[in-house]
């Protein structure tokens, strides 16, 4: 039997790795993938909780999260492709026509 705390710890660690990836990396695709990691960390947490409570809400929410992740990936990659069309920009820093 895997205790709940293990699921939560795993979820937390992966979430932090993903968040660190978002903040650290300059490559937009890697940032996108780090966001996927964050969402998956949430899924691990949800599944752990779902098992603990003995109901399906967590799993259903996890399915919705996967749905949203798919939608986000599609739109995000489309934006990247349209950005990439006339100049090869992948690093976030080079996206600098607008000043922060």
């Amino acid at each position: 039997m895997v205790p709940l705390s293990h699921y939560l710890a795993l979820g937390a660690v992966v979430f932090v790795i993903g968040a660190a990836g978002v903040l650290m990396r300059r490559n937009a695709i890697i940032i996108l993938m780090s966001i996927e990691l964050m969402l998956n960390a949430v899924n691990i947490t949800l599944v752990g909780f779902s098992r603990q409570w003995g109901d399906l809400t967590g799993q259903v929410l996890a399915i919705f999260v996967i749905t949203v992740a798919a939608a986000e990936a599609a739109v995000g990659l489309a934006i990247l492709i349209s950005l990439n069309r006339d100049r090869s920009v992948l690093n976030v820093d080079e996206v600098n026509l607008l000043k922060w």
Binding site: V42, V75, G76, S82, L83, V95, N96, L98
Partner: peptide
Amino acid sequence: LSREAGLKYFLMGAFTSG
């Protein structure tokens, strides 16, 4: 400009929703 704005908005927004 618009595409860049979209990229920045998207990355921050997706991060936020996570």
